[in-house]
């Protein structure tokens, strides 16, 4: 763990950019330099930023599929279990074997959607490391503008390629301003 001379843990080295376009170009620089642990911060989503950052496909969809299948199987269990096995009920002379399944479709559909939505929501939180009470980037007083008109890029110190001089030089070359070390706590 890197520390500043004053003894603070180093979270990242960050820079500010004048516009969304400048941030977009800077992201390509950092991506091409091979960094993995870094992020950009902007007041609004920037189209094409995931390509510029070299982000791959998000596997949130895998968790949603898992949630959906779980929901489907749960519905099958709670419907066929009681109605076909535990207490067979004759409704309108309709069958209680497998072929009564159309009557069960709505619940299967709803639980698939419900569990899929839960999986999407909670996996999104998990994959983003949320909920989180405080983010180290807020230790930098300029960063307060991120929800207004500031565009920031931070390369984290846990990235294996992180060296103070190398990163500073890279950020300078990519057009970053106010380059600074951000403390962890």
């Amino acid at each position: 763990m890197m520390r500043t001379p004053a003894g603070h843990k180093v979270y990242a080295m960050a820079a500010e950019y004048p516009s969304a376009a400048a941030l977009y170009e800077a992201a390509k620089h950092v991506r091409d330099a091979g960094f993995k642990r870094w992020d950009v911060y902007s007041p609004f989503p920037i189209h094409g930023m995931d390509d510029a950052m070299g982000l791959g496909k998000s596997w949130l969809s895998g968790w949603v599929l898992f949630g959906g299948v779980t929901g489907l199987l749960t519905a099958a269990l709670v419907e066929f279990g009681p109605s076909s096995i535990l207490y067979q009920l004759d409704v309108h002379g309709k069958p209680w074997n497998f072929w009564t399944v159309p009557a069960f479709f709505p619940i299967m559909f709803e639980l698939t959607v419900l569990f899929g939505a839960f999986a999407a929501f909670f996996s999104m939180l998990g994959m983003n490391g949320l909920p989180r009470w405080y983010h180290p980037m807020f230790n930098w007083e300029r960063f307060i503008r991120v929800s207004n008109d500031g565009f920031f890029l931070a390369i984290e110190s846990r990235d294996p390629r992180f060296t103070e001089n190398g990163v500073r030089e890279l950020l300078e070359r990519s057009g970053g301003e106010h380059i600074t070390i951000v403390h962890e706590d």
Binding site: H92, P102, F105, P106
Partner: peptide
């Protein structure tokens, strides 16, 4: 599928 099944199930169930 949603509409097709919706049409089928309501008719099948009401009989």
């Amino acid at each position: 599928a949603y509409i097709g099944f919706g049409q089928y199930m309501l008719i099948w169930y009401a009989n």
